[in-house]
Each structure stands twice: as structure tokens, then as C-alpha cells.
Design a protein around this nucleic acid. Sequence first.
RNA 1: GCGGAUGUGGCGGAAUGGUAGACGCUACAGACUUAAAAUCUGUUGUCCGUAAGGGCGUGCGGGUUCGAGUCCCGCCAUCCGCACCA
Length: 841
Amino acid sequence: MSNEERFNPHVADARWQSIWEERSSFVADENSTKPRAYVLEMFPYPSGRIHIGHVRNYTMGDVLARYKRMTGHEVLHPMGWDAFGMPAENAAMEKNVHPGGWTRDNIANMKAQLKRLGFAIDWTRELATCEPEYYGHEQALFLKLYAAGLVYRKESAVNWDPVDMTVLANEQVIDGKGWRSGAPVERRKLSQWFLKITDFADELLTGLGSLDQWPDKVRLMQENWIGKSQGLKCTFGFPGGNGGIDVFTTRPDTMFGASFVAIAADHPVAQKLAAHAPDLQAFIEECRKGGTTAADIETAEKRGFDTGLTVEHPLDASWHLPVYVANFVLMDYGTGAVFGCPAHDQRDLDFARKYALPVTRVVADSDLTDSAFAGDVAFTGPGTIVNSHWMNGMTIDQAKADVIARAQAEGWGSGKTQYRLRDWGVSRQRYWGTPIPIIHCQTCGAVPVPDDQLPVILPEDVNFDIPGNPLDRHPSWSKVDCPSCGQPACRETDTLDTFVDSSWYFIRFASQPHDKPFDRTLAEKWLPVDQYIGGVEHAILHLLYARFWTRALSHIGLIDVKEPFASLFTQGMVTHQTYQDAKGSWLSPDQVRREGDIWTIIDSGEPAVAGRIEKMSKSKKNVVDPDDIVDQYGADAVRWFMLSDSPPERDLEWSEAGIEGCWRFVQRLWRLTSQVSGADGADKALDRKTHQVIARVGADIEALAFNKAVAKIYDLANAIEKAAPSASRDSAIHTILLLSSPMVPHLAEEAWTKLGAELGGGLIADAAWPAVDPALLEEDEVTIAIQVRGKLRDTLTVAKGLPQADLEALALASQKVQHAIDGGEIKKIIVVPDRLVNIVL
RNA sequence: GCGGAUGUGGCGGAAUGGUAGACGCUACAGACUUAAAAUCUGUUGUCCGUAAGGGCGUGCGGGUUCGAGUCCCGCCAUCCGCACCA
């Protein structure tokens, strides 16, 4: 085949990309009267190179965006950069570059990479969170939330790396040591800024109910994260009426089964006692050291320290319970104290057995109502209250209500709703983030930076030669006068968690005025995002914070949007087989060769081991660089591969054979377009196929079932190739181009132009999605399955709508059917019109 | 431990309770070619059979139904999330 007959992406891709750009094809018109569609993929962190996972993510969004355009929508499909964060500081330390320069270079590189894939993005709205034009407005929003009382400052414990002199996130603490320095991590108390997300706990929970286009899995994860539970908050008083210990319980019905009270190591009562009790102090220290990883907790023994204190049981003041400091009680949930009811809580039982505390049964599900409780397995099921005075015989729910009512009447407690969700700590002791716009004054305290002094811009002249936050040691940056009293004061040197940056970028995309974060009317025109696509790893934090931030803005009257993302889709990862040599070192796919089932290392000829199929990662060397494959196959083949075969929510395995197949299909589609014949005559069967495929592909794209849409396009391609020349066939070729154009846009434009004489020119990107003729969706012949006792014995092709009696007669006339009946007695015949006949013997 | 998802050919996967395996990949055979690539035509769940045809097949065991990959009950396996949450 000559070169002219081939589609050449190396020429075509760039040509069409620049034509789209020249014509501003994908710039969203905010004055449009068309229905709007806001399609958004989670914006990337500018790490330096596009990852194949990004390609999959953005290809999905792109297909939807292009499809929406073709179906008459004004589409907003923007792109930006989640540009603050630690990797830039790490690079600064390792390579002696400025985080800003490093980040901006990365953005330039990645933008070029994205452009090569031909995404239909409105680049005029591009934003980077590290630029003052963005984070300045974020500071303004932060101060509005502060003014509304949704921001506060409190002492909070952090993981402190004493060598790097920095705060570490939990996942940066490995075996109690800093991930970078390897130094044992200390717990430090720092004054930190918090956002009152807990004020919105109930709203965020009930709001999940309206998100019917979110995956159940994500809604459930958020529900669990918010962790609503209802119970009783009550006081166990110290004898003599001198204060007491507040506890929260979800099982007030088991009050009479109490045998001890346990408090957290950080509980004020424990702290106070420890001041004069070195052995308790030592115990508390040990509790704090305990790891926070899953494995640590699983293996951690329940341990306690008897304080010698006792408290009165609220329902019987003569009954005194011992108070322990226990390693399993968390200070930051509930009140930091619990009462233990060992018979009906496994953790309490473990503890009671260890310290030989009483175990009293108060719930029974059988005849076993004795107060003595044997064994090491707590009973947590439903049952009837026993050994509990007036509550005996009640159900658990009745008893709960009774105790809460009594507590409220008598004033020692009240019903309470408790959430697992904690307020969002947003302070980061780092340079490369949004400066928190607060000034600390000795006289006035924390003073917001006045509006006219925003943005608070990061100083450029910083260095990373020594550990710690460069903002802290900058000679002048933090030194300012107090806006309130004019005395010398000090800027806050902490910066905001980068999750704040990503909590409102979708609003800024919709509207980008210079003088304010967004224009309300314009933002409300586009929002909520109609389709949001990204990785499931953001199921909780990013998506919860963005929901909170939007609600907080709504709460203070800045925008009338409750939920930012109407529909959410979480796509699977791109995976690839891994390879190792005999010593276990990872090998990249191009270092190995396969012969049958044997893998060998190409250079040395030594055997290689083909390992698990895993998410592409640099450390396992099973990566494929998007630039390389675009160089080799062109953007369209890569895009097609991203959409083929695997359902988008599942993992997609990269394979050489797979991309080769896509490349062949791109060429096959190209060849088809040269087969427009100008012939006359209709081909009813092909027309029918064409219209069925139009309907399916549209529905599949709307459902993001790209693999099915791809399969239907293959189906149509097969049908076209088999059909004889006709006007119908020419029309089918035009149709298949339109249907595949969101997926392989460069090829589609190239072919569209080639056929332009017939079609009147114009870009296929601006063409309308083909209309479905409903009349052609119906077959006029149907194939009927003939079953005998539910087993298929024959099939018959008959006219659609044949009456039941005729179907029965035809079925019985079949030799195969008669053979299967074999003279047996027919009990009844089930007929499903146009589908099947089942003869029951 | 708690919660959730998934399980279909050699592989990725299709299938409103109604013909299981669409479509793609792989493999094999053939055509074209001096040859290769590309392309085209077949075959490709499994077992029995020359064939016609038939048996068995959607992780395992039950159930509902004229009919179950699909619905119900109970297991098993894998993956994911959360995790001392009172």
C-alpha cells in the first residue's frame, strides 16, 4: 500500500490541533443560549510528565465533551494545574532549583504533552493554583469564611520530623520514622488553623442522598468517613460532687453493665494526675508512642493504668466505678472518655478480662439471662434487657430512649449526635503553598490581612539549603505592621493545605474576573459540574472538601450552589505487567523478550520473571510514556486504546498487541472513507444497522460506557465492509466518521475534509451528531428461539409480530423440536412474541 | 474486625429473567506476494462424533421460575475502603 493511502498522524495530528486552536473551536461561550454542559476531569499535579493514567482520564472527558458539543450543547471543558505541594520543595532541595521555576517548567512540558493528544480543551481558562491570580482570590475567600466564623485556630498535635524540621502527614510517617530523614517522629503541639467542616457534617451527609449520579461506593465511603452516630453524653461524677468525667456512648441501654470508666492518655484528668505521678506519666508517654498504622492497632494490646480514682454511676450514686487511663481511648472522638460495658463490647471485654473487672450481662437473646457472663466473646446482637432494674424486659431501643429521657430529666446527660468527622486542619509548615492571610499582633492577636493588601504573595528569594520552612527564616517577608494598631507584627508563615486549592478551582474555571474570586451569576450558569471524572483515590478527601467549601460559600451567600459535582465518575487505573530479574530488580518491558512462556533479558540472555499486572509506576519500571506512544502511533490510536475493551471504571492493562490493534483499526477506518462510491440505491439492512449503532453509541457515550460504544463502531465497520456499494453504504461511511469523531478526532477531521465536496466543508468538530430514524430501529424479521424444557433446540426466522398460534405451530413443525419432544406429552407452551417458544413437557 | 465490589473462553470483556460468549486481542489455516509487512477469507468455550448431531458449560452448593450469568439463601476466592470511633 502506498503512503498516500495511509492515515499519517504525524502530519495530521498537529495540523488539526492548530486549526482547532486558530478557530477557537473549544472556547466556551458564556453568552450562548444553547443548553450548557460542564465536563471536568480532576486537574493534574504538574509533576513534570503526563502519566498514562492522565491520558485515560482526559480521553474519557474529551469524548464526552466532544459528544456534548455535537449534540447541541455549549460545552465548558477546561484544564488547569494543582500546582502547589511538596514535590516542588523536594525538587528544590535535591536539585537546587526554585519550586516556582520547577513547577512552571513542568506545566509547560505537560501542557505540550496534553496538546499532542488533541483534547478539546478551552485553554483560555487555564489556571495554576500557584499563581497569585488564583491563590490571592483563595485568600479572600478564606478571610470571608474567617469573618463568618468558619475558621479558627487551636493547638493541635502534629507529627514533627526533628531533622527536617517539618510537619509530616500520617502517610509520611513510616514505622514511626520520617520518610525522608529516617528520624524518629515526635508529637508536637502547634497552633494551627482549622476549617469548621464539622458544622456541615449533617448537611454533607444528607446531601449525599441527592447525589444519585455518584457511585454508591464513593457515597458510602463519605458516609462512613462522616460517621454519624447517636447516643448519650453524660457525666460520671466524682464522689462528693466535685466535677466528673463526661462520656459518650451509643449504648446507654447497657448502663447497668458498666464496670469501669476509661479515659484517653491526653484527657485533662489524666494530664492533671500525671503531673504528680511519674509512673502514670510514663504510661501516657508509652501510649503516645504507639503507632497509628493499621497493623499497629490490630496487634496492640488493650492496656490500662488504674488511676485510683472512682466515679459514681449516674443511675446509682452508691455504685462506684474505677477510672483507668487506657491506650484504646481516643482523645479526639466524643469526650475522650468511655464507660466500659464488657459483656456487650469486645474491646471492653478484652480490657475487663485482662484487669479482672466485673462482667455483667445486661442484654439477653435467649434463656441465658444470668448476670454472670462467661467466655471471651462479647454479645453485641439484639435482645432483651436483663439485670437492669426497671429496664428489664425492654428492647434495646426502648432502654436507650428511657435512659436518655431520664438523663435529660435529671440533668446528668442528654441525647447527642456524634460525628467521626473532625475539623479540617489546613495549616502546613511549608513554603510552596497559599500563604495564610493573617497577621499576628502582640496586642490585637490574629488580624486578617485587609482586602486591599491581598494577595499576600510568596517571596521569591528563598532557599532550601537548610531544613524547615523558608518563610520562617526569611529576613523581611513576615515582618509587617499590624493593620489594626500599626505596631510591628508578624505574618502567619504557615501555608494552606493544597486541598484548599482544589476545593474551588471548578468555580474559578466557570468565571475568572480579576477583581474577585468569581462572578456569581456566571458561575451559577455553569455549575454544578455536569460530569466530573477522576481517580477513586480522591473519593473522600478532595471530594468531601470541595463539597464542604461549596456549601460554606453558599452558607455565607456567595453562591447558590449546594453540590459542586452533579455526576461523578471514578475511572480505573492503567496497569502493565511487571518484570524482575533473578535478583528481584525490576525490569522495564522493553528490557525483556518473550519466547512462548519464557521471558529473557534481552541484553544478557538471562531469565526474567514476569510478575503481577500492577498500576504503572516508576519504581516498578512498568511505565509507558505517553509521548513515546503518541510518537509511534499518533494520538488517535492511543485515544482509541484508552477507550477500548475495558469498562472505564475498571483497570485497563496496557499491551503492545492492544495498541497495535488500535493502530490497525485507525487505518481501517481511514480506508473505509476512501470507499465512498457515489452509487445509488438503498440497502435497508445496512440502514437499519447504521441507525441502531447511532442510537447505541450515543447512549453508551452518555453512560460513559466507552468500551461498548467502541464495540458498536467495530460492528458497523464490519457491516459496511460486507455491504455492496449503495447510497446507504456511502451514508453509513459518513455516519461512522461522525460517531467515531469524539474518539479519533484527527482522523475524523482529515477524512471529513477529504469527503468535503459531498458534505459542504466545515469541521467535523462542529458537525451535528447524526439523528436516529426510529423507524429504522425496528427489525421486520426476528429470530425466534425454540426451546424444549428450557433448552434451545432450534431457531426460526419469521416476520415480526407473528401471532402466538402461528409461532406455536411453526415451533411444533420443526423436526429438531419433534426429535427433542420424542413423543412426550406437551403440558404447556410458553410463547414470548418475537422472542421465543418454550415447550414444556 | 466492619463495610463494599468483583468472579463469564487462551486474554480484555458483551448479554431489559428469554438463542451465553457481541466486539476486540491472541492463536491457527488459507488467499495475495519472489519474500516479508500490510491487507483479505475462514476457524478459535469444552467433550464425543468423519459428519449430521449431541453432552457439558458463567467461582462452589442450594432455591424460585416454563426458562437463571442475571433474582433469593448459604459458602469460597480475589480486590478495594475504613479501622481501638465508645
